[in-house]
């Protein structure tokens, strides 16, 4: 097991390296830069700015400098647009909120989606099944940026139960978390419900469940001890993609609910062509995701005995 973890951990290095390199060159081959925008700068000012940010150096040198800063000093450089702010500062101020929101949403979607899926499978073709699968189909078909505004319209603007926008603070309290987290969790709740329903049904049909029943075990033992573990493995391996989706989705949710998270910074940086900030966002996001995938693999390894012995 330990070997497996170490090997998996080592494989993160080339992945991160590729991500850094790819995003660096993608951005630097792009026509136009952050300073070729609306207002034309006088040439000498521009030259000064370029010099300040080392943008007058050859691309190779810039790349090596960037690699050096990022890998050895965890320094993502200054923001081109937000003057006197470092990318590190901007990201570390906003990332925790996004990760917290994402994590709550993931928990919500796994807990509720898993439960809905298992119940649907055990009550196949009964009302419980139809109800949760109908809700799931809504979750899969309706985009986040429709769900968000619509529940805002209903629960905040019409019913006044919840604040329209904002983020957890001492005055509003935790209620501001409810709508964003529910919105963000909904699609993944839906996927997980369908996934776990399908895999419970598949395991129920499997030979080893027939064996368990032929041994005279109670149905509750058959389900609890023999079905669930195997059936939840696909859900565990879906956690990686789900987390990636939640991270991406949080960009929309942060926009809709005006949450000062990293997603909004990211969109702003993309709209502003604030290249260091874009790269910094990508690298941080990727690091979070790659690490989350690693965790998922390790959890999977613990759950499936066949992995650990490979």
């Amino acid at each position: 097991m330990m070997k497996f973890i170490i090997r998996r951990l080592l494989s993160l290095i080339p992945t991160m390296f590729i991500i850094i390199t790819l995003s660096f060159f993608l951005i630097h081959i792009a026509p136009g830069g952050p300073f070729s925008g609306e207002k034309k700068l006088p040439p000498h000012v521009l030259a000064n700015i370029l010099k300040k940010y080392h943008m007058d150096e050859p691309l190779g040198a810039q790349y090596l400098r960037y690699l050096n800063d990022v890998i050895l000093h965890f320094d993502l450089g200054p923001s081109y647009r937000y003057e006197d702010q470092s990318v590190n500062g901007l990201i570390s101020a906003t990332m925790p909120r996004s990760i917290f929101l994402g994590f709550v949403s993931l928990l919500l979607s796994v807990a509720l989606g898993g439960a809905a899926g298992i119940i649907s499978a055990l009550r196949q073709n009964k009302w419980q099944d139809y109800l949760s699968m109908s809700v799931a189909v809504i979750g899969i078909s309706v985009p986040l940026f429709v769900i968000g505004p619509v529940i805002q319209l209903i629960f905040a603007m019409q019913l006044h139960w919840l604040p329209v926008t904002g983020w957890i603070n001492s005055r509003a309290g935790w209620v501001t978390l409810i709508m964003p987290a529910v919105t963000l969790a909904f699609p993944y709740f839906a996927y997980i419900a369908r996934l776990s329903r399908g895999s419970v049904l598949e395991v129920l049909r499997s030979d080893y469940i027939r064996t368990a029943r032929a041994k005279g075990l109670k149905e509750s033992v058959v389900i609890g001890k023999h079905v669930l573990k195997g059936a939840m493995l696909p859900v565990v391996s879906y956690l990686g993609p789900a987390f990636a989706g939640i991270i991406t989705g949080s960009i929309v949710v942060e926009t809709v609910f005006q949450i000062p998270g990293v997603g909004r910074i990211f969109v702003q940086s993309a709209l502003n062509r604030d290249y260091t900030l874009i790269m910094g966002d990508i690298i941080t996001y990727s690091a979070v995701l790659v690490f989350a995938n690693f965790l998922v693999d390790v959890i999977y390894g613990f759950l499936d005995p066949r992995i650990a012995y490979k």
Partner: peptide, 19 residues
């Protein structure tokens, strides 16, 4: 490796590069 990347983010970068 591509799977590990947050692909919508890459699309966003690409879109931001469009002149």
């Amino acid at each position: 490796i591509m799977y590990g990347l947050p692909y919508m983010l890459i699309v966003i970068i690409l879109m931001s590069m469009v002149p």
